[in-house]
Amino acid sequence: MAISRVAAALMRPSWCTTAEVLEQVELLGDRAVAAEAELLALAGGLAWWPVGYTAGLSRDASNPWQALAKVTVDLPDLRQRCLELGSRLLTGLMDVAAAHRLWLVAGGIPLPAEEGLGNACVLLSPDGRLAGMQWQTHLDEHQASLGLTLGDSLAPMDADGCPMGLLAGDDHLFPEVARILCLQGASMLVHPGTASAGERAAMMARLWRDVQGNQVFGLEAGYSGPGPFGAAVLGPCELTSDGSGILAQVGGEEPSIAVVDLDWGRLRQVVEAYPIHASLNPALYQRYLLDAYREALR
């Protein structure tokens, strides 16, 4: 695996202009470069900040999706506005990736999908190319009310030989997503999150579960907040001396990054000692799982 030093960003959310979003990204990119990180995971919802700003939301609104849905749902030009701002931010992020020679992952970019407007996570290469994109595959009621469409595919993408799975929006709440990505070979999961820094349990209820359940590395970016657990680099518990599975984390109110060297050799040892994917019970799932979804949703 070529990528070894990675960073996850804690960002201060605000309904602000695209330039202000990029200013914060630049700052965190500078820090990642200073720490010699090769990849920086940014938070989610980034292009929605300017969407909220142009819709007149106050700068400190909490619960972005709910606030945004309330204000923007009736805007006649919502789709066009989202596409313009999403595209503008994406271009700016590509420039930051190229200027810093960094792999960048960012989330919350509205882009045109096959049937309307989708919410995407993107992987940008150090030469400023769009190296991969992942649509959000699970929406909540607020996101659905904005007219977002569901993604219908999941695939890992390659970053310097490291197969990486991106989890957009709330997709990390659904263990199916990480399993599908990891069974296709993802060895690192990246979640540009929108949760505010809080307590340990809240972090463990998010990407941490998927990391443990699939024995991979995980990068979770997030928003600033009162607690110590905001952005983190995660791994199987066996990789940490305290058994926490948290390789590095940052929290608090100021933008910052958590940086870690990933030890791929030790990860391989953990998997070899007890390979979870080899101990699955496919006959059980094939017999019952898909039918159980159908029955429950009937």
Binding site: D140, L150, D152, L280, Y293
Partner: peptide, 27 residues
């Protein structure tokens, strides 16, 4: 709330096939 957000079509597209691939050692 959680039930209402599931995406079974997505799961159905991937999981049977992927489980087959992952299970060779167990079988």
């Amino acid at each position: 709330e959680r039930l209402g957000r599931l995406n079974p079509e997505l799961y159905g597209r991937y999981l049977p096939r992927l489980y087959d691939g992952a299970s060779w050692r167990a079988s």
